[in-house]
Simulated scan of single mutants.
Amino acid sequence: MFAVQYHRYGGSEVLRVEEAVEPHAGPGQVRIAVRATGVTPADWYLRSGMLRSVATVGFPHIPGMDAAGIVDEVGEGVTGTAVGDAVFGLVPFADLGGGAAQYAVLEAWAPKPRSWSFEEAGGAAGNIDTATRVLEALAAAEGMTLLIEGAAGGVGTMTAQLARARGLTVIGTASEGNHGFLQQLGVIPVTYGAGLADRLAPLAPHGVDVVLDAAGKGSLAELVAIAGGPHRVVTIADFDADRHGVRYSRSEAGQSPGWAGLPRAADLADQGRLTVPLHAVFPLEEAAAAHDMSATGHARGKIVISVP
């Protein structure tokens, strides 16, 4: 099969479209003919070697932690899914084969919502898993106010929508150019940066209950003060979390508590209550450009790679 692979750590120049070993569905898995795969910061963190002390990869490695496509193999023990079904889901974290390929194995999945294109579905599962995991860790419940630092990105937009579906009020930091975009998602926008607490005061007169840091811009000390304690803050982007007593949440090998969010998100999408804003869609041969765009940290929504 064809796939994007890299054989060593490095910049985006190490990515190549080439022949790769074809994966097959194991017990409890399905294999899909991939139509699209998402790009996340974790993809280029891994590719660069930034995470090698905590999450090494085997070479050659195919990037892409989520994907959407058509099921063409069903593993032992799988029920409710058949060859020919359109699905979206998560690629096994520990395996060599990711979503940027002709075929990929999924370890968690849900039916593709009718209202989503394959590109939208291909970039959804990783962010749904992360958002669900974070909301559970924060015990986010109806009536609470959630502040998202970095709300306009892929994780921020998904967390905001899933939080609103739970009955939370969501305030999100972003540049002024993204305020209108956030308002369309039902998010109360606020400009990020120093003095955030003062700008929040009129927006959340009763205070902020819980905080997600999806930006990793060194603002944890201020976010902890705003929330009233480190136990009310979760980051997915600041490796300095321990110094502030804040939980750092990341995907692990094996079953994730966020997997249950996939079918729930699919239901919300079919109700017209969940969208996947796309920042850009790149063809497979431009995977390096997709990684470079993600690394700028300025994507509004999700970056996706389409697979022919």
Rank of each mutant, 00 (worst) to 15 (best):
residue 104 A to N: 12
residue 106 L to M: 07
residue 107 E to Q: 15
residue 108 A to Q: 06
residue 109 W to F: 03
residue 112 K to G: 11
residue 112 K to C: 09
residue 115 S to V: 15
residue 118 F to H: 13
residue 119 E to G: 07
residue 120 E to P: 06
residue 120 E to S: 12
residue 124 A to V: 06
residue 125 A to I: 08
residue 126 G to L: 09
residue 127 N to D: 11
residue 128 I to Q: 09
residue 129 D to Y: 09
residue 132 T to L: 06
residue 135 L to G: 00
residue 135 L to D: 00
residue 138 L to E: 02
residue 140 A to F: 13
residue 142 E to H: 14
residue 143 G to S: 03
residue 146 L to Q: 02
residue 146 L to T: 02
residue 146 L to W: 03
residue 147 L to V: 09
residue 147 L to M: 06
residue 151 A to Q: 04
residue 153 G to P: 09
residue 153 G to N: 10
residue 153 G to Y: 06
residue 154 G to H: 01
residue 154 G to V: 02
residue 155 V to Q: 00
residue 156 G to Q: 07
residue 158 M to K: 05
residue 158 M to E: 10
residue 164 R to V: 07
residue 165 A to G: 11
residue 168 L to Q: 05
residue 169 T to M: 08
residue 172 G to P: 05
residue 172 G to D: 11
residue 173 T to W: 14
residue 174 A to W: 09
residue 174 A to M: 12
residue 177 G to N: 13
residue 180 G to W: 12
residue 182 L to D: 14
residue 182 L to I: 11
residue 183 Q to T: 15
residue 185 L to I: 11
residue 185 L to T: 04
residue 191 T to G: 14
residue 191 T to E: 15
residue 194 A to S: 15
residue 197 A to G: 12
residue 205 P to E: 12
residue 206 H to N: 12
residue 206 H to R: 11
residue 211 V to D: 00
residue 213 D to N: 02
residue 219 S to F: 12
residue 220 L to S: 05
residue 221 A to K: 03
residue 221 A to H: 01
residue 222 E to V: 03
residue 223 L to F: 00
residue 224 V to E: 04
residue 224 V to R: 01
residue 225 A to M: 09
residue 230 P to C: 08
residue 233 V to G: 00
residue 237 A to H: 02
residue 237 A to L: 05
residue 240 D to W: 10
residue 242 D to W: 06
residue 243 R to K: 13
